[in-house]
């Protein structure tokens, strides 16, 4: 039983390290900001998830000292990764005229929320 748990934990750790590597590799390799955003948000989050599950399996199955608080970090990272990604892409859209030119129309009356003419915080910035 302990051997199975140890093998499972080892496999999860290696798998997690692989996805973390892919995330960072994508960040280094992909050519522009919006494409770079894809690799770290997805691959890195799944990689850290695998690593934390491996930690749970190992402490529960091998060390005989079960703990579940790793689950909280996993949950926290899965909830925050999309928020981080959206904040970064909004800031990027605001700062890059080239990206703004690429944006498709919204299909409605209002513009995209980030674009400068909708910037509500502008007057308070000074």
């Amino acid at each position: 039983m302990a051997l199975v748990a140890e093998a499972l934990a080892a496999a999860l750790i290696v798998l997690g390290a692989f996805f973390l590597f892919v995330g960072s590799f994508g960040l280094a390799k992909l050519p522009d900001m919006m494409r770079r955003l894809h690799a770290p948000t997805k691959a890195t989050t799944l990689g850290i998830g695998f690593t934390l599950i491996a930690s749970m399996v190992w402490f529960g199955g091998v060390a005989g000292d079960p703990s579940f608080h790793e689950l909280m970090i996993t949950l926290f990272l899965f909830l925050t990764a999309p928020v981080t990604a959206q904040m970064i892409s909004k800031a990027h859209i605001l700062r890059s005229a080239q990206t703004q030119a690429e944006l498709p129309p919204t299909g409605g009356d209002a513009a995209w929320a980030t674009l400068p003419r909708d910037r509500t915080g502008e007057d308070k910035a000074g």
């Binding site: 919006m34 955003l37 909830l79 009356d109």
Partner: peptide, 26 residues
């Protein structure tokens, strides 16, 4: 929905239109 889009195949949600009727996805 926006969080789901970010976490799933090949898409990142980038922005919402100011009136909340459409979502910008990369």
């Amino acid at each position: 929905l926006a969080a789901t889009i970010t976490m799933t195949p090949g898409t990142v949600s980038a922005d919402l239109s100011a009136d909340g009727t459409s979502l910008l996805v990369h």
